[in-house]
Design a protein around this nucleic acid. Structure first.
Lengths: 183, 183
DNA sequence: CAACAAAGTTGACCACCCGTCACGGAACTG
DNA sequence: CAGTTCCGTGACGGGTGGTCAACTTTGTTG
């Protein structure tokens, strides 16, 4: 029927996407915890058994959905880091991007896991070190610490409320200079 | 029968503890995710309905168990912080305590939530600031960032393997001086 | 093109779980 | 010792997870 791609394969792709879209709607409406696999499949023209041809569990769907969203957000997250001329610019760009993205995606996945962007961050960090912007720390541990801290602070912003710009400034300063008073 | 405390109350306390102990065993054996409320109650001499007189959900039990364990660990976590004479000592004590505790509790609650120790850490931080050890940063945000980073690094130690002492040193240095090269 | 094989969807099915609730017995009260 | 309150019990209805035989559709082969 349609060029190169055989029908079977097209349908498989469509079904998979169908489930992901259904899951996105269901998670947004009831939250991840309350949603059941039945709910997801009901938000779809497919039958219960079909679900298991594509995913093994609800968690599996969450991971796939997370990956899909994280992939879409990838450019936005690293935006501004490559051009940063100073460590401060780098950190500021990082934190404000994470805070913005977290706030937006909160409706679908209350806590999108941005560790998918871990590698991007790590390589950006190494580039920055090569440019002499940073001290040559363990880029892997540093990326983990930055992501974890940003994550937690974003969570606090979402629940307790608070100003993202101010939080960005504070976090930037913390990682820029540390806590020790200058000698 | 027995002094002051009426029997009803004693039994309630015993049942509650019974459920928590059962949960501890079940979580350790099957992991939190795989465990069901029925499993927990079966590890107990009680009947299904009784569970709901004490807890509302599995998550509720996890929180209670987490609180119980976190309370027991409280002194160990803050140990060494109050006596710290320098910022470096403070951070080093903090990180090594978190890494050790996380490694030990991993069998029961794969990820014990140490945010219960948040307040302790925050007040310790404020004391340290008062003693002039630290720059006067937002103690609340700083505590959150420290806990989150320690948590994430501990997770990486548990999965990828790695040396706790070395990780402690690296994390201490990061938060002590930040990433910016000295001018 | 007709026959056949492979792939994949369907929906009923079973075991089990969740949360509830009427019942009954034990603990407190006066 | 009656009366009352409290609470553990276990069966029950509604629903879920994961499976699977039957069926339909797609791709293949002579």
């Amino acid at each position: 029927m349609d060029a190169a791609i055989p029908k079977r394969q097209r349908i498989k792709q469509r079904n998979r996407q169908s489930i992901l879209d259904g899951a996105r709607r269901v998670f947004a409406e009831q939250g991840y915890g309350a949603a059941t696999i039945r709910d997801i499949i009901r938000a779809t023209p497919l039958a219960a058994g079909t679900f298991y041809n594509y995913f093994t569990s609800k968690e599996d769907v969450r991971l796939a959905l997370n990956a899909e969203m994280a992939a879409a957000l990838r450019p936005r997250l690293s935006e501004g880091r490559a051009q940063a001329a100073t460590a401060e610019e780098f950190l500021s760009a990082f934190f404000s991007a994470v805070f913005a993205v977290k706030a937006e995606t909160g409706t679908v996945l209350e806590a999108i896991d941005l560790r998918a962007g871990f590698e991007d961050l790590r390589t950006d960090l190494e580039d920055a070190v090569a440019r002499g912007l940073f001290l040559p720390l363990d880029s892997s541990a540093l990326a983990a610490a930055l992501l974890a801290a940003a994550d937690e602070i974003a969570k606090r912003l979402a629940t307790d409320g608070g100003d993202a710009a101010q939080a960005t400034a504070a976090a930037t300063l913390l990682f820029l200079r540390g806590i020790q008073p200058p000698v």
